[in-house]
Amino acid sequence: MKKTVLIAFLLLFQFSFSKTITETQKLAATCKIWGFLKYYHPNVADGSKNWDEQLFQILPKVEEAKTSESFSLVIENWIGSLGEIKKGKAIKS
């Protein structure tokens, strides 16, 4: 479920931007993704990563991105570097 939400979240941002992307759009999207991952990515939510430092490491790469495609690639690589999301067990009701 979380993986599906994450993929949908990324696709939403990828298709919502035009070819060029402003600094404000990049920063707003980065902050939203950073906040989402802080609570919902299992490898981040467990507290094993210095999440504030991760933001400062990704910001120069975000700033270098000039198009929405290059921005999406930066974000995709960042999320991929956080580690694989293991499939959870189904909850029986």
Rank of each mutant, 00 (worst) to 15 (best):
K89S: 05
I21L: 13
V62T: 13
S16R: 12
T20Q: 14
G83D: 12
G47A: 09
T24S: 02
K19G: 01
T20S: 15
F9I: 00
G35N: 15
F71S: 07
K92E: 07
K3P: 00
S68I: 15
L55F: 14
S70F: 08
K2H: 01
A65Q: 13
G80R: 07
N77S: 13
A28D: 01
F13G: 09
T20K: 15
T30Y: 11
E53D: 11
F9K: 00
G88E: 10
V74F: 10
I21R: 14
T30P: 11
L73Y: 10
L37F: 02
I7G: 05
I85Y: 04
I75K: 01
L59P: 07
E23G: 05
I79W: 02
K86N: 08
E84C: 02
T4W: 12
L27N: 09
K49H: 03
A90V: 11
Q57T: 13
Q54K: 08
N77I: 10
A8C: 03
G88V: 06
T4I: 13
T30A: 09
S70E: 15
Q57P: 07
P42I: 04
L11K: 08
L27W: 08
P42T: 03
L6S: 06
I85W: 04
Q57N: 14
T4H: 14
E23V: 03
L11I: 02
Q25M: 01
K2Y: 02
N43Q: 03
I75Y: 06
T20I: 12
Q25H: 02
A45V: 02
F9H: 03
P60S: 01
A45N: 01
K61G: 06
K87P: 04
Q25L: 01
I91R: 10
P60Q: 00
G47I: 04
K89E: 09
W34G: 00
E69M: 15
T30L: 06
V62L: 12
K38L: 07
V74E: 07
K89I: 01
S70V: 12
K61P: 05
S48P: 04
T20F: 15
I58K: 06
L12M: 15
E76M: 12
E84I: 04
M1H: 06
A29C: 08
P42S: 10
L55T: 09
T22L: 05
K89F: 10
V74I: 10
L27I: 02
L55R: 08
L27K: 09
L12T: 11
E84W: 03
Y39I: 00
N43T: 01
T22N: 05
K89D: 08
V44M: 06
K38T: 09
K2F: 03
G83T: 10
H41V: 01
S16M: 13
S68C: 15
Y40D: 02
G80M: 05
K61T: 08
F71M: 11
F71K: 11
L59A: 06
L37M: 11
I7T: 12
K19V: 08
I79C: 04
A28Y: 05
P42G: 07
L82Y: 03
W34K: 00
A65I: 04
K66R: 15
Y39S: 00
Y40A: 07
L6A: 04
K26R: 15
T4G: 11
T22D: 05
F13K: 02
A29M: 10
Q57E: 14
M1L: 04
K89H: 02
P60L: 00
N77P: 00
G80A: 05
L73S: 12
S48I: 03
K19M: 09
T22R: 07
